[in-house]
Amino acid sequence: MQRIGIIGGGIVGALTAYFLKEAGFNDITIFDRQIGQATAASAGIISPWLSKRRNQKWYHLANDGASLYPQIVKTAKITAAAYQQTGTIITRANSTTVEALFALAQMRKISAPMMQEIRIISADEIMKMIPQTQINSAGVYISGGARIDGAQFVSEVNKYTQVKYINESVHLTANGKIEGYPEFDKIIVATGAWLQETLIPLNYAVNVRPQKGQLIELIDAQTITVKKQPVLMPEGESDFIPLGEGRIIIGASHENDAGYDLKPTPIIKDYLLKSAQKINPQLRHAQITKMRVGTRAYTPDFAPFFGYLPEYPNIYVASGLGSSGLTTGPMIAKLLAELIINRQTDISAYTKPISEYIKFKN
C-alpha cells in the first residue's frame, strides 16, 4: 500500500486524507505547524448558490463541494458544533434585486437539489427567525445552507480518519522528498498562502498572495436563545452567524495589505462589533470572547488551483482557495484523492492548468 504524506492540515489536507482512507489507503501522515492556517481561524457559511461570480469552474467546485458535506457529516459523525444545516438568508435593500436573486436561486436549484426550500422572506419573518435583530430588507431564504466551524470540523474529521498527525513544520528537499522522514510514495502540499515558501527547494515561482482575515466571537447573556437560527448574510454588513446559547460569530474581514501578520487589529475588531450591533442592537451588552485571525491564499484571478507538478509527478498541490475555501475545499480534496488513485482523472471542469499559477524556473 502506498505511503501518503500531506503537508498542511486545513480543509484540503484533512479531507484528502478522509477520501483516501475511504478508498482504502491506511498509511497517511499529515504534517501541520498550525500557525496562521486559514481553516483553523474560519467559521463559514456553506451557501454558494447565489454567488454572482462568472467563473464557472469556481462555481462547479463550490456547488459540488457543498454537496459533499451531508455524506461526510454522516460518515464521520460530525457534530452540530462543527457543521449544522441551519439555512441561510441573503438580504437585499431593493425588492427588484431580491426577486432577481430568487430567480437565480430557482435556476441554480436545478443542478443543486441540496438547496432544498427556497423562498423570498420578509424583514418581519427574518426578525422572527433570528430574535432581537432589526432588519429593514427582505431577502432570499435557502433551507439547505449551513454553517461550519473550520477548526472543529477538521478536528472531528481527523478523529474519524485516525491518520498520523505531526504538529511540525517540515521542508521538501531538492529531489522532492520530505526532509527527515522516510520516503513517501505521494506527497500532497496544501499549505495555502505559504505554498511559495514550501516549494522553494523545487525551484518554482508561485503566483499566490496572502490575505488576512479576522472575525470575532461574541457572547451575550441577554440574547434570546433559539436552538437553530439561520445564518444571515446582510447586504452591506458582515456575515452574522448565530451559534445558540447567546454566542454569535461576525466576519470575516478581507485585508490585502497585511501580508502574513496574525495580530488582531483593534480597528477591525471595532468595525465587526459595530456591524453586529447594526443587525442586533442588543449586542451593545455583548462581550467579545475571541478574535480569530488567519491567512488566506489568493490568486490574481481569485480562482483555486490544484493538480500534480509535471516535473515532480509524485507531488500534488492545492492553493488559492480564498474566502470560499470551506466550500470549495471538499471537492478539491476529493479530486486530489482521485488523481492519486488514477492520474488520468479529468479535472479540467474545475480548474485551469496548474501552469497558469506555478512556473518551474529552469
Rank of each mutant, 00 (worst) to 15 (best):
G180W: 14
A100P: 00
G322N: 11
E217R: 13
D32P: 04
G65W: 04
P242T: 10
Y141C: 05
E245M: 09
Q85M: 11
A193M: 05
M291L: 08
Y308V: 01
R92N: 09
T86S: 10
I35Q: 11
T91I: 02
Q71R: 13
G307Q: 03
N94R: 13
W58D: 01
L335N: 01
P300A: 05
A138Q: 13
Y308Q: 09
P210E: 02
Y181Q: 05
Y357T: 03
Y83C: 00
K274Q: 13
A62Q: 05
I78L: 02
N94K: 14
K274A: 13
R147V: 06
Q132Y: 10
A276S: 12
K361D: 12
K57D: 02
L339V: 07
M233S: 08
Y357G: 02
M129R: 15
A205T: 14
S275G: 11
A66C: 09
G24C: 08
P281W: 06
I45V: 15
K186C: 01
G44F: 08
I148V: 13
E311S: 14
K352L: 14
A17P: 06
K212W: 10
N55D: 15
Q214P: 03
G307K: 01
A252W: 06
K109M: 08
T16M: 09
T79W: 06
I89V: 11
G10Y: 05
A17Q: 06
E356N: 15
D64C: 03
L50P: 02
P131R: 14
I78R: 01
Y83P: 00
A82I: 03
A43F: 07
V189R: 00
I267T: 15
N94T: 09
I121H: 04
T223R: 15
A252D: 06
G213S: 13
L101I: 00
E356V: 08
G150Y: 03
T133M: 10
I89K: 02
I200V: 15
L336K: 05
G9S: 03
I347Y: 01
K359A: 14
V170G: 10
F360Q: 13
W194Y: 13
L336C: 09
K74W: 09
Y59F: 15
L195Y: 06
K57R: 15
M127K: 14
S275H: 09
T16C: 07
S348G: 09
G144S: 01
A14H: 00
N207W: 00
T225A: 14
V163N: 08
M331I: 04
A81Q: 14
Y141N: 01
I315G: 00
G180Q: 12
I11L: 13
K263W: 09
I288L: 06
A112D: 09
I46Y: 01
V98I: 14
